[in-house]
Simulated assay, not measured.
Amino acid sequence: MGFLDKILGKKESPIQSYSDFWNWFLKNEKEFFKIVQNGKNIHKDFFNRLGPKLDEIHDGIYFLTGMFNDQTAELILTPDGAIKNIYVIEELVNTAPKMEGWKFTALKPASAITDVGINYENFEFNKDNLKFYPNIHTGYPDEIDLTIVYNHFTEDKKQLVTNGVYIFLDNFLGELHSVTLIDNMKVVGLNETSEELIPIEKLKDYLIWREKEFVEKYEGTRHNTDNDNYSSYEATTKDGGVVIAILNTDLLKWDKKASHPWVFIVTIPFDGNNNNGMPDNEAYQLLNEIEDEIGLDLKDLEGYLNIGRETADSKREIFFACKDFRKPSKTADQLIKKYSGSLEISYEIYKDKYWQSFRHFEQN
């Protein structure tokens, strides 16, 4: 076997846990350190080996590296803006063993404004050419809606400029604050606004103040759904299919929606081709079991409210409003893994402080 290993190359064991990953990294860390320190062939000799190992843990883990100081290499793991992958990166970094010469960081850290200058697609972003102002909505007082004003904005390069601003904010605010504190944002030029402009260096303090105010306003807010009222909704699609929804109407009327600002939607497809897009008895039972399974993990008094579900077009969507985005993401990933051989379960999680995703149910 040893002879064959030399000829074919010894196959490395698959990564099945965080500890498996760090054990693999430990075996290679001295070689990786030299590669980062030298700054040559980093992509080929380090990233091309690191990437597949991280993929075995979870899709969508990206990375940056460089020398933190003369004696320490830093590896920054980032979800590149994907909220659902933050928990994996935080857990992975939290389990990292102590390694002399290495610093492991979950998510891009915040930087002093004087240290942030971004060059992206021939545009430069810095404290001198960026300003902002908040948009206040009386009907949505907790919404953080920002307009970023960029001196060199051009409409034909709008998407590139917006991407550059997001990269700037990731580095200035830190990735976690950048992707979780801002609800809505648009980028415009100087000639598109008459508002009083605020220097971009004051954005960090503004967001911290708004978040502190928000937390204090809703601190301790809980909702027990045991005695809530539910309503069923039925409609037909354009092609004649059936849509059936069951919603918690007390929650839809709740005046503290913003206390649970994260909307979490689990989508479960099933074979409904012979039943007008609806599940048969066996599928119906399985769907209910999965929903109960999610509910056991995500309890209302812990900050996870089951708003209801909708069944149509051979799929069921289960709706939650949550105080936090980490646990729902982890619960969904575990569910996807458990049923990977039989169901193609998917999910999304995003910020929607006023549950506008369910406004059509309220109107009905």
Results as ranks from 00 to 15, higher is better:
Tyr87Thr: 10
Thr331Val: 14
Lys157Val: 02
Gln71Gly: 09
His177Met: 13
Ser232Cys: 04
Trp355Tyr: 04
Thr193Ser: 12
Phe132Gln: 00
Glu213Phe: 05
Glu213Ser: 12
Leu160Phe: 07
Asn171Cys: 03
Leu176Tyr: 13
Gly240Leu: 03
Glu282Ser: 12
Asn227Arg: 11
Lys338Gly: 09
Ser111Thr: 10
Glu348Arg: 14
Phe68Cys: 04
Asn248His: 11
Phe125Gly: 01
Phe63Ser: 15
Ala82Gly: 13
Ala110Gly: 12
Thr249His: 05
Gly174Ser: 12
Lys337Glu: 13
Ala112Gly: 13
Lys338Ser: 10
Lys27Val: 04
Asp142Phe: 11
Ile198Asn: 06
Ile268Thr: 05
Trp262Tyr: 15
Gly220Ala: 04
Gln37Val: 04
Ile244Lys: 04
Asp20Cys: 07
Glu211Thr: 07
Asn274Phe: 08
Asn227Thr: 11
Ile15Asp: 02
Gly39Leu: 05
Phe104Arg: 01
Gly139Glu: 14
Pro97Met: 05
Tyr87Ala: 14
Ala283Ile: 06
Pro269Glu: 06
Glu216Leu: 15
Val215Ser: 10
Arg49His: 13
Trp262Gly: 11
Asp5Cys: 00
Ile246Leu: 08
Asn276Cys: 07
Leu335Asp: 00
Val266Tyr: 02
Lys315Leu: 09
Glu362His: 04
Phe21Tyr: 02
Ser346Gly: 13
Thr72His: 11
Glu216Arg: 10
Phe104Asp: 05
Arg359Gly: 08
Leu173Trp: 00
Leu130Ala: 09
Lys40His: 08
Tyr133Arg: 00
Asn69His: 10
Asn248Lys: 07
Pro79Leu: 03
Tyr120His: 13
Pro279Arg: 02
Thr114Gly: 11
Glu211Arg: 12
Gln16Cys: 14
His137Met: 11
Tyr166Glu: 09
Phe132Thr: 00
Tyr347Asn: 07
Ile76Val: 05
Ser111Ala: 14
Gly189Phe: 02
Gln159Ser: 15
